[in-house]
Amino acid sequence: MAVDYLHYLRADKLPHMWCPGCGIGIVVKSMIGAIDALGWDKNETAVVSGIGCTSRAPGYMDMNTLHTTHGRALTFATGVKMAAPDKHVIVIAGDGDSSAIGGNHFIHACRRNIDITMIIVNNNIYGMTGGQFSPTTPYGAKAATTPHGNIDPAFDLGQLAIGAGATYVARGSVDNGRMLQKYLKDGMAHHGFSVIEALSNCHTQFGRRNKMSDPVVMVEWIANKVVTKAKAEKMPPEELEGKIITGELHRNDERPEYTDEYSQLIQRVQKKAGVHQ
C-alpha cells in the first residue's frame, strides 16, 4: 500500500527549506514510511530535535514537535518520555548536534536505555553554520575550518552508541531509502534506546569543498563507500579499507528499559508506603 507521506507532514509548510538534493528529505521520508508501517498515531508521537539543518525536520512533521537548543534534543526528549512513558518519542539530530555539543547527552541516553529512537543524519559537516568540520568529518577532508585538510580523527557513531549501551544500533545511507526505512522501523519498534545513523549528503557545504558539489555525485560517493554487513563479512580486509558498513550493527533485547525500571520503582515505593500506613 502506498504511504500517504503528506498525511504525516504539515503540508502547508512545503516545499521544505533544505537544498535541492539534500539527503535529510530522504531520511524524513524513510522515517515517515517507518511510522506508517508501524501504525503509530500522530497524536501519540513526539519528534524532538536540536539545532542545525536536520533539526528543522520536526517543523514539517504533523506531530507533537519540539525544536530545542543545540545538542540538547535528547534532554528534552528524556523529559517528554519520562513524563509520558506510553508515548512514542523520536529524536532527529545531525552529526555535530548529536556527537559534539550533544555528545554527553548521547552517551547517557544510550546508558539509560530509555525507549527513544534517535536518528542521526550524518552528513559529516556543520551545514547550517557554513560548513565547519564536525566530529565525523573524514580525515583529510576540507571544511570551512579545515582549509588545509582535517587532522581530527572521526567518531564511528555506531561503535560509540554500542559502547555506551544503546540496545539497537543500525546504519543506513540515503542512497538506499528502502534499507534505511527498514532500520528505522526496526529501531522504532525496539523497546529501548535505538540509534539509527543515516549517512547523508551535504553537497552544498561538504561536497562543494571536496569535489562533489552535485547531489547526484555525492550520493553516488556514499553509495560506493557503503558495504552491507552481510557483504562485508565475506570480503577480505584489504577490500574493506575505507568502506563503511551498513546494516543492523547491534541488538540487545535483554537489557531493562529505563521507563519500565522507573515505573517498577514507583510500584515498589508505593507498595512499601502502603505497608507502613
Binding site: 540538547r72 534532554t75 528524556t78 517528554v80 513524563a83
Partner: peptide, 21 residues
C-alpha cells in the same frame, strides 16, 4: 518522576520537555 540527569543543562532540558506534557 525524579531523574538525575548527566548534567545541569540536561536537567533544564528535561523539565521543559516534561512540562510540555
Amino acid at each position: 518522576t525524579f531523574i538525575q540527569m548527566e548534567d545541569e543543562i540536561a536537567s533544564m532540558g528535561a523539565i521543559i520537555g516534561a512540562s510540555l506534557t
